[in-house]
């Protein structure tokens, strides 16, 4: 190595100072060719999507903002919000139980996560839909009256969500250095204050990215409630195309709305992450 270096020609050129030398970048012909090929293919796909009459873009435009579709969208949005809020509340409780010193609480929390992660959400939802067969009456009320399709949707999705949220929150709490808790203990801060003021705000940094994932997953996942006739975004367009047989354009209506909402959520996630990263950014 040192031999090769010593034999390399002198850097100082005879025909000019080092500052006056122009740097010529390598020609990356292969990269350019690949880009052209990909762009051409993309263009072909796009033209076919626009030109293909079967997409029926006119029908898409007609139904995009109809009351029925907007009602379905609204249900999808509030169902997602409720399931996320309740799911994470229960999930946080499960995570704290799992990390507690009490072996019974630990075991119960573990068992919950195990059970609700081990079965498909579709099966769970159908199970809750038919809970009346197991318990015809709950507290003197007919189960069928108590558990309407919307309630079944909230309960079923929340219990499933909580199992995943528990693991996300637990991971976040574990990511906080042990020294942080010791420092809080040495300052006389109680367990609730330690969790709320010291541990969770720091845990949020590792909770937010997977929670954002879950939020987007939940938004799309709520479409599963269409099988129990809950009138969400997907079900509302299904109702239309069962009548008009315009399956593809109406599925496109639902698709576009899902894309719009998930895009907005992704932007929101960026700002939430930035908020919880305060004090973390290195001075560069």
């Amino acid at each position: 190595m040192s031999l090769a270096l010593s034999e390399s020609p002198s850097v100082a050129p005879e025909d000019g100072t080092p500052e006056s030398l122009r740097i010529v970048p390598l020609r990356r012909t292969g990269q350019r060719a690949a880009a052209v090929v990909v762009l051409v293919l993309l263009g072909l796909v796009l033209t076919s999507v626009v030109r293909n009459e079967a997409f029926q873009w006119g029908v898409v435009a007609d139904y995009f903002a109809t009351t029925a579709v907007l009602r379905g969208l609204w249900l999808t949005l509030w169902l997602t919000a409720v399931v996320m809020a309740l799911g994470f509340a229960l999930g946080t409780l499960l995570a704290v139980m799992r990390l507690s010193a009490n072996p019974v609480l630990r075991a119960v929390s573990w068992g919950y996560v195990w059970l609700f992660r081990s079965t498909p959400i579709l099966v769970q939802l159908l199970f809750w839909f038919n809970i009346g067969a197991l318990y015809p009456q709950i507290l003197g009320v007919r189960t069928v009256d108590l558990m309407g399709p919307a309630t079944v949707a909230v309960v079923g999705l929340t219990l499933h969500e909580a199992a995943y949220a528990a693991e996300v929150v637990r991971g976040g709490i574990l990511s906080v250095e042990r020294g942080q808790i010791e420092a809080a203990q040495s300052l006389g801060l109680g367990p609730w204050r330690r969790l709320r003021r010291i541990v969770l705000p720091q845990a949020m940094r590792s909770i937010v990215p997977p929670a954002g994932n879950m939020l987007i997953g939940t938004l799309k996942g709520t479409s599963i409630v269409s099988i129990i006739a809950v009138n969400d975004l997907l079900y509302s367009v299904q109702l239309v195309y069962h009548r008009t047989y315009q399956v593809v354009p109406l599925l496109l209506v639902a698709t576009l709305w899902y894309v719009v909402v998930t895009s907005l959520l992704s932007i929101g996630q960026y700002y939430v992450e930035r908020y919880y990263a305060r004090g973390q950014a290195d001075a560069r």
Binding site: E177, G179, Q180, E182, A183, A184, S186, I198, P201, Q202, Y276, R278, G279, Q280
Partner: peptide, 13 residues
């Protein structure tokens, strides 16, 4: 009783 840690353990947030 005040306690000062080797790694400071300040609350970063």
């Amino acid at each position: 009783i005040g306690f000062v840690f080797q790694n400071f353990n300040l609350f970063p947030h």
